[in-house]
């Protein structure tokens, strides 16, 4: 299965196909008939396995926001080429993302520095609380995105790492 959505921390693989009278959702363990009829202002009617649900859907970039059964959810589409390329080159741990919006209190490394797993890379502040960001694995700092005092949103790329071997 090429396609994937991230929902929370979990990645779900899936495929979509068209049938004679709608679509099919292909999951690891089952295939379900599905269809979506869109109305105004994001409102839509989802038919899943014969049941009808009113949903509200909005998209921005790769993010899909769905209001379903009284709750809002966010899913992030992972394009197969991007996801598989990342899998081939290393893990997501190469990229240190902001766990929440905030600002940089201090940065203790610079590009080119070799770091070991657990080493403190920077300190950020959010909601008047300081959070330290540590190296997810051994590696070499490829780039540091923000300087002291700069602010960022959640999931902003704070630092990127490359493998020590690759750098040599």
């Amino acid at each position: 299965m090429h396609h994937a959505f991230k929902l929370g921390d979990a990645e779900h693989n899936l495929e979509l196909s068209r049938s004679a009278d709608g679509y099919r959702l292909h999951l690891a363990d089952r295939t379900l008939p599905i269809d979506l009829k869109t109305g105004a202002d994001g409102r839509a009617w989802l038919t899943l396995d014969g049941e009808h649900h009113e949903v509200v859907i909005a998209t921005r970039g790769d993010d899909v926001f769905v209001h379903f059964d009284g709750e809002a959810y966010q899913l992030r589409y992972e394009h197969p080429l991007k996801r598989l390329a990342a899998a081939g080159l290393g893990s997501a741990e190469d990229r240190v993302l902001a766990p929440m919006p905030g600002s940089i209190v201090s940065v203790s490394v610079k590009a080119g520095d070799a770091v070991t797993k657990g080493q403190i890379l920077l300190v950020m502040e959010s909601m008047k609380m300081e959070t330290t960001i540590a190296a997810p694995r051994d590696g070499v700092i490829e780039a540091v995105t923000y300087d002291k005092g700069q602010t960022f949103d959640r999931d902003a790329l704070l630092l990127s790492l490359v493998a020590i071997e690759k750098k040599k």
Binding site: H2, L81, L84, A85, A87, G88, L89
Partner: peptide, 14 residues
């Protein structure tokens, strides 16, 4: 270039 068979096939699909 592709890092894996899965990626190679995904590229071919594209």
């Amino acid at each position: 270039p592709a890092g894996s068979e899965e990626e190679a096939i995904a590229i071919a699909r594209d």
